[in-house]
């Protein structure tokens, strides 16, 4: 091999690496986002947390994908968690909840702003359009999204037995806090 060809090969390699970097810089992600849901009724308050939520933001077009495992939701009472997974959500059939959406006017948002987010939420294989607003805080290395919205239990074909219908609210409040970091 001549010097020239080695040089050419090296520069080609560098070019590929730099292109990769440019693409990679567009993505912010977290594997430890927090999602909680609440149900308030006169009989009892139910809360569950999931701190292992995956979320990816593409800053090029403002697209956001959030995925979480239903079994990772942690309840105070173990029995509640069992009912949630086995009877209501059927985690063995539908292990994940997925949100695919877009942060509106992403490029025009300030460092600290309120962003409109629209997308499709899929739970138990049932998809539903969600539109909400979230507080957004961004820097060169971080994007933090924080907010909450409501969903109706019936929208996702979740059947709740009449015996416990007074214990579980018809609408559930879902709150989220996602600390995205620049993907390296």
């Amino acid at each position: 091999m001549t010097k020239k060809s080695i040089l050419l090969l090296l520069s080609a390699l560098l070019f590929i690496i730099s292109i990769n970097k440019i693409i990679a810089q567009d993505k912010f992600f977290t594997k430890s986002g927090s999602v909680s849901f609440f149900s308030y009724t006169l009989v009892e308050d139910i809360k569950a947390d999931n701190n292992q939520v995956l979320s990816i933001i593409n800053t090029g077009n403002g697209k956001i994908v959030i995925k979480m495992l239903m079994r990772s939701f942690h309840f105070k009472k173990a029995l509640m968690q069992e009912h949630f997974n086995e009877n209501y959500i059927e985690s063995y059939k539908f292990p994940k909840a997925i949100f695919k959406g877009v942060i509106k006017n992403f490029s025009k948002l300030e460092k600290k702003d309120v962003a409109k987010i629209e997308g499709i939420l899929t739970i138990r294989g049932v998809s539903k359009k969600i539109s909400t607003v979230a507080k957004i805080t961004q820097s060169n290395r971080k994007i933090i999204l924080k907010g909450k919205f409501k969903v109706r239990v019936a929208d996702f074909d979740i059947r709740i037995p009449t015996v416990v219908s007074k214990n579980i609210s018809k609408t559930i409040i879902i709150s989220f806090e996602l600390n995205h970091k620049l993907y390296k």
Partner: peptide, 13 residues
């Protein structure tokens, strides 16, 4: 621990 599934990584709780 208990395996809860797979996203980009295997998750255990």
């Amino acid at each position: 621990g208990k395996c809860t599934g797979f996203l980009l990584d295997v998750i255990m709780a």
